[in-house]
Simulated assay, not measured.
Amino acid sequence: MSEGRAPLPPRPQRGRGAVSNREGRFARQRHEPLDSDWSDPAGEVPESSPRTTVAEDRSRRVITYNRSPDIGFDRSLNPYRGCEHGCIYCYARPSHSYLDLSPGLDFETRLFQKPDAPEQLARELRAEGYRPAPIALGVNTDAWQPVEKRLRLTRRILEVLLAFRHPVRVISKSVLIERDLDLLAALAEQGLVTADVSVTTLDDELNRRLEPRAAGGRRRLAMIRRLAAAGVPTSVLMAPVIPALNDHEIECVLEAGAEAGAAAASYVILRLPHEVAPLFEEWLETHYPQRAAHVLSLVSQLHGGRTYRAEFGSRMRGSGELATLIAQRFNVARRRHGLAESLPQPRCDAFQPPPAAGDQLGLF
């Protein structure tokens, strides 16, 4: 290291969640930004701040299957890798390490789309022996993130699902979902869809730092209201619950969700797998330095003295006295406002692949 040059501390960048671009766990090299004469001492965004790029992902299949016993679906579909919303807590961030990219700023700025996802989906639904079950759409990264406005992949996927009369669970925090209310309402008329709307906080300042390119909590409540009015069974999802940061909002989020028309409510405790832990710690030290040690201590209590435990059953809810207290508070508030624990599953018995181009019609 040259004399007089020191490593740059993590710094916030306008409109981005991560405060660094630290390497993933599979990286062969390590990079360390150094302070220099051209560094901005005020911490403002330099001209070289990363801009969003979108490349193509040519995966051979689009439906991903799982056997996890603690989630309510066995298959999902994600039109995008990476997510421009920039939520610092996102458990999908480590997946960018498999692409030799950073789970930090790269995850928010270097996105991948699956341009033929609707056509691949149709082929997989037509496969011999396929048995329908609800597909979770957007469970890893938001299917209605900003680039969807231009690319319209998610809308085309919904059109395929409607044509096949296939059940779907949509999960989102994006107001762009309202663009597709016509398709969601048509699916709802046949009992083929449910929606989970993530409402993490009603605090605008916390929202701006925690989820920098996502809609605010009040705006998401309006989404719930519009979905419910369109006949879409909708749940308010408080995810993640972060002790000493947003856990005090449990009661008011559920009350507001019920008033907006939500029929059910659920939550997920903060999860910090792999690279998410150091990224979240950097974020805390940058935005809430006086609270950081306390937050991390409580998170450790939720996971048996560790930053994170991946065991089925406890990874979503945590364990110990603090986890029990959060669960009790949530359940009391849920019952007080007449919210169910979960929504009924979309029906599967209506599934019927439409005729494909070139199919010979029957005589009778």
Rank of each mutant, 00 (worst) to 15 (best):
G129F: 05
V170P: 06
T324M: 11
P273R: 05
E282M: 07
E84G: 08
F164R: 02
L363M: 02
P94H: 07
A185H: 11
L192H: 08
H248A: 11
L161D: 10
R123T: 09
P240T: 05
L137M: 05
R218F: 11
A340S: 14
E128Y: 03
R317E: 08
L272N: 02
L187S: 05
K114D: 01
P354F: 01
A186N: 07
L221I: 00
S319H: 09
F164A: 12
L151C: 02
L158Y: 02
R335D: 01
L325F: 07
A260F: 00
D70V: 07
V170C: 11
S48L: 06
P243A: 02
Y80C: 04
V54H: 03
N246C: 04
A244P: 04
R218N: 06
C252A: 06
V299R: 06
R271H: 07
Y89M: 02
L111M: 11
S297G: 09
R220V: 02
R165S: 06
L151R: 15
G24Y: 10
P233S: 03
Q120H: 15
R334C: 07
A357Q: 10
A327T: 03
T234Q: 00
L325S: 13
P33L: 14
E148W: 03
G313I: 08
A265P: 03
V232T: 06
E205V: 11
A258M: 01
P79I: 01
P10R: 09
C348Y: 00
S2A: 13
V45G: 06
P10H: 08
V139I: 12
L121E: 04
E211M: 10
R11V: 12
H294I: 00
R329H: 12
V193G: 05
L284G: 07
A277Q: 10
P12A: 12
D70H: 14
M1G: 15
A127W: 08
T234A: 01
A27N: 10
A323P: 03
Q190F: 01
E108G: 08
D204L: 00
Q301A: 15
F330P: 03
I171F: 10
D35F: 07
L322K: 05
H85V: 06
A127S: 15
S20C: 10
T109E: 12
S314V: 15
N331R: 15
D116R: 14
L176T: 05
A260M: 00
L77V: 06
A310P: 12
E56N: 14
A256P: 00
Y288F: 14
L111E: 13
A292H: 13
Q345C: 04
E119H: 08
P355R: 11
L363K: 09
I177M: 15
V236Y: 00
V253P: 01
L99A: 14
D203W: 05
G104V: 12
F351P: 10
V332L: 14
V168I: 09
G338W: 00
L151M: 12
V276Y: 04
D196P: 01
E148S: 05
D203H: 09
V45S: 13
T154G: 04
L192G: 05
P243Q: 01
E255P: 00
R334W: 04
V45L: 05
A117C: 15
